[in-house]
Design a protein around this nucleic acid. Structure first.
Length: 109
DNA sequence: CACATGACGAGGG
DNA sequence: ACCCTCGCCATGT
């Protein structure tokens, strides 16, 4: 199995998100080279996070919320993020203006 | 080649 | 703010 360059970039980006910061599926897709590849990002997390030791919990959706369901890891992800100092506001929403990792290009990695 | 999958996102009601 | 629809994409079967 070989992964597309885009998917490889996604892995590289996620692996470099610093503790205490988060990134959204959409932004990762953009930085990785495909503005419309957000769904592929979720696929990577779901199937390759353990194999590549990815900090999967640092990826949330564009609304600043956790995308996992109550029975698929929601609580675990929230705890991991809180342990890194990330705060949850009303509606369990994270303030992106404060916790979003400011990266503009994959070259910064 | 056809069809299903997955932790998405923008838009509208 | 919530819910649904629709478009999108790399993979897997």
């Amino acid at each position: 199995m070989s992964l597309s360059p885009f998917t490889q970039n996604v892995i590289k980006i996620i692996k470099n998100i610093p503790a205490g910061k988060v990134l959204t599926y959409g932004i990762i897709a953009i930085i990785a080279g495909n503005p419309r590849g957000a769904r592929q990002v979720s696929w990577v997390l779901n199937s390759l996070s353990s194999k590549h030791q990815l900090p999967w919990h640092r990826v949330i959706n564009s609304k600043g919320k956790i995308s996992l369901g109550d029975f698929t890891g929601y609580t675990e992800q929230k705890e991991l993020l809180e342990q890194e100092g990330i705060l949850f506001g009303l509606q369990d929403k994270i303030d992106l203006n404060k916790f979003l990792w400011q990266i503009k290009s994959i070259d910064e990695i």
